[in-house]
Amino acid sequence: MNVLERIALVLIIIGAINWGLIGLLQFDLVATLFGGGSQAGAFARIIYTLVGISGLVSLSILFKHDHEPREKHHYQPQS
């Protein structure tokens, strides 16, 4: 996973936690932290936009074909 994909994943996790809070508690953490005033409201919109873009970027992870064999770790007792 490259750096862009890792950043996208972190933003998706933030977005998922925020949506979970909205669904369970009707509490929008991003809006609470950045939603007051015009400049802070603009910052909240930027966060929402980045989370959305991260979802689109992560589509590439979903459809990525991993052609490299994964290393298998076998336990080998020492003699």
Rank of each mutant, 00 (worst) to 15 (best):
L50G: 03
R70S: 13
L50D: 05
L9V: 00
V10D: 10
I12G: 13
L62E: 05
L33Q: 03
I12H: 15
G23L: 13
L24D: 00
S60E: 08
L9H: 05
Y48K: 12
Y48I: 12
V30G: 08
I17G: 03
G52P: 06
H73I: 07
A16K: 13
V51C: 07
F27S: 06
G20M: 05
N18K: 01
A31Y: 11
I12P: 04
G55F: 08
I12M: 14
P69I: 09
I46R: 07
E68G: 04
Y48R: 12
M1G: 08
T49C: 12
S38A: 05
G35L: 03
L4M: 15
D66E: 15
L29H: 07
Q76R: 00
L33T: 06
L24M: 01
D28K: 00
R70K: 12
T32N: 14
L21P: 03
L21G: 11
F34Y: 15
L33W: 04
H67Q: 14
G41M: 02
L62F: 06
A40R: 04
F43C: 07
L25P: 04
L25N: 05
G15E: 14
L59M: 12
S58T: 09
V57M: 13
V57W: 11
G52L: 07
H65L: 12
L59N: 10
Q78I: 15
G52M: 10
T32I: 09
L33D: 00
D28H: 02
S58P: 00
F34N: 09
I14H: 02
A42S: 06
K64H: 13
E68M: 08
T49H: 07
H65N: 12
L50I: 14
M1I: 10
S79G: 02
P69V: 15
G36V: 01
L56G: 11
V30W: 00
L56S: 14
L62C: 09
H74M: 00
A8N: 15
G20W: 08
L59A: 08
G36M: 01
L9C: 03
S38F: 02
F34R: 05
H65P: 02
A44D: 11
H73G: 03
T32G: 08
F27H: 13
R45Q: 05
L9S: 07
K72T: 12
Y75D: 02
S60G: 03
D66L: 14
Q26S: 15
I17D: 03
V10H: 11
E71W: 08
A16S: 14
G41P: 02
L50K: 09
